[in-house]
């Protein structure tokens, strides 16, 4: 399901115009983004939690040229599903599109 389908599905279910849904969605995404930038976790109950993790710096070697490079540390978002949702989807088979 892509963004368009998501918007139309939500607008159908909530009986709100697609325009408003897309505004709401943009606002949600920006709320997520600001939370992450402050280093906060975001938890969606029943689904999972988004956390910020720091990946340490590391040294890589290009196998063909043997050039060694130091990759700087970085921050990333990870998603951990909640236990209830984990149990729920454990054995289902997605049909695909």
């Amino acid at each position: 399901m892509n963004n368009k389908e998501l918007i139309s599905e939500l607008s159908k279910r909530l009986r709100v115009s697609q325009n408003d849904i897309s505004n709401l969605l943009a606002s949600t995404v920006s709320a997520f983004s600001t939370a992450f930038q402050q280093g906060n976790d975001v938890s969606l109950q029943g689904f999972g939690i988004f956390q910020i993790r720091k990946k340490n710096e590391r040294i890589i070697v290009n196998p063909s040229t043997n050039v060694r490079q130091i990759v700087p540390p970085k921050l990333t978002v990870i998603f951990k599903m909640s236990n209830t949702y984990k149990e729920k989807i454990k054995n289902i088979i997605p049909h695909g599109k």
């Binding site: 280093g39 938890s43 109950q45």
Partner: peptide, 8 residues
């Protein structure tokens, strides 16, 4: 590490 957890 995190400051805070934001809920729904």
């Amino acid at each position: 590490m995190e400051n805070k957890k934001q809920s729904i």
